[in-house]
Design a binder for these strands. Sequence first.
DNA 1: CGGGATCCTCAGGGATACTG
DNA 2: CAGTATCCCTGAGGATCCCG
Lengths: 126, 126
Amino acid sequence: MKYDYDIYSDRCPARAVLDRIADKWALLIMDRLSAGPTRFNTLKRDIAGISQKVLSQTLKLLERDGLISRKAYATVPVTVEYALTSLGENLSRAVEAFAHWAESNMDAIRKAQAAYDRRERSASGP
Amino acid sequence: MKYDYDIYSDRCPARAVLDRIADKWALLIMDRLSAGPTRFNTLKRDIAGISQKVLSQTLKLLERDGLISRKAYATVPVTVEYALTSLGENLSRAVEAFAHWAESNMDAIRKAQAAYDRRERSASGP
DNA sequence: CGGGATCCTCAGGGATACTG
DNA sequence: CAGTATCCCTGAGGATCCCG
């Protein structure tokens, strides 16, 4: 066996972790935070399509997981900064690998999709 | 900018790719396939908790993306084997990094969660 | 064995409004 | 600014049955 635990078991704690971080919003947030501490509304603005509800709830979960930290400054109005913890920074390396992979291979994927769709079309075609 | 495209834009093709592969079932399937070509029901049995519907639909999507290949053998009853393509194998490296990260850091995460929950509990009073 | 077709549910997440 | 609170709805996904 490749793993100490069986990651394919739904009782494996590692799989619970995988379930949590295999989330597009969490990945985008972490990747964005790898550029440095960032404020709530900046994240909301920068990550197109995320709602404030999902953003805040994802941030809370990531904070609970110890992957990011939340720091509030007693300014008026209040300022809050989110940043990666060392644990989160560690993970963001893997995230980066993912994002970079997606970037450098998207053309291959799009070609594969087009080819697949052409095959499907001719298979069910007239 | 770190990327050629802006991955935080919802129009970025790389983000579409990220959306697709940031899926726990897809990740588990790819990771399982990295051990070698595998049949449908074997996947279903091994990956605890996946339904047949989700399995087949995820396999189809992964095949469309060119990440896995499907090979049917004219036996009775029919035998079908799924395997990683070279593109998929390439990705599965990143997936493995993810899975391993999850495995080796799950304890830290669980501790962080417990600490967070303790803080929350004491924050919201007796 | 390897799926396709259906039905059903329920929770993830969007939109909106409000607050410290 | 940085969220919380509600309402609401859609679609992901589970359960079941069936077929080549």
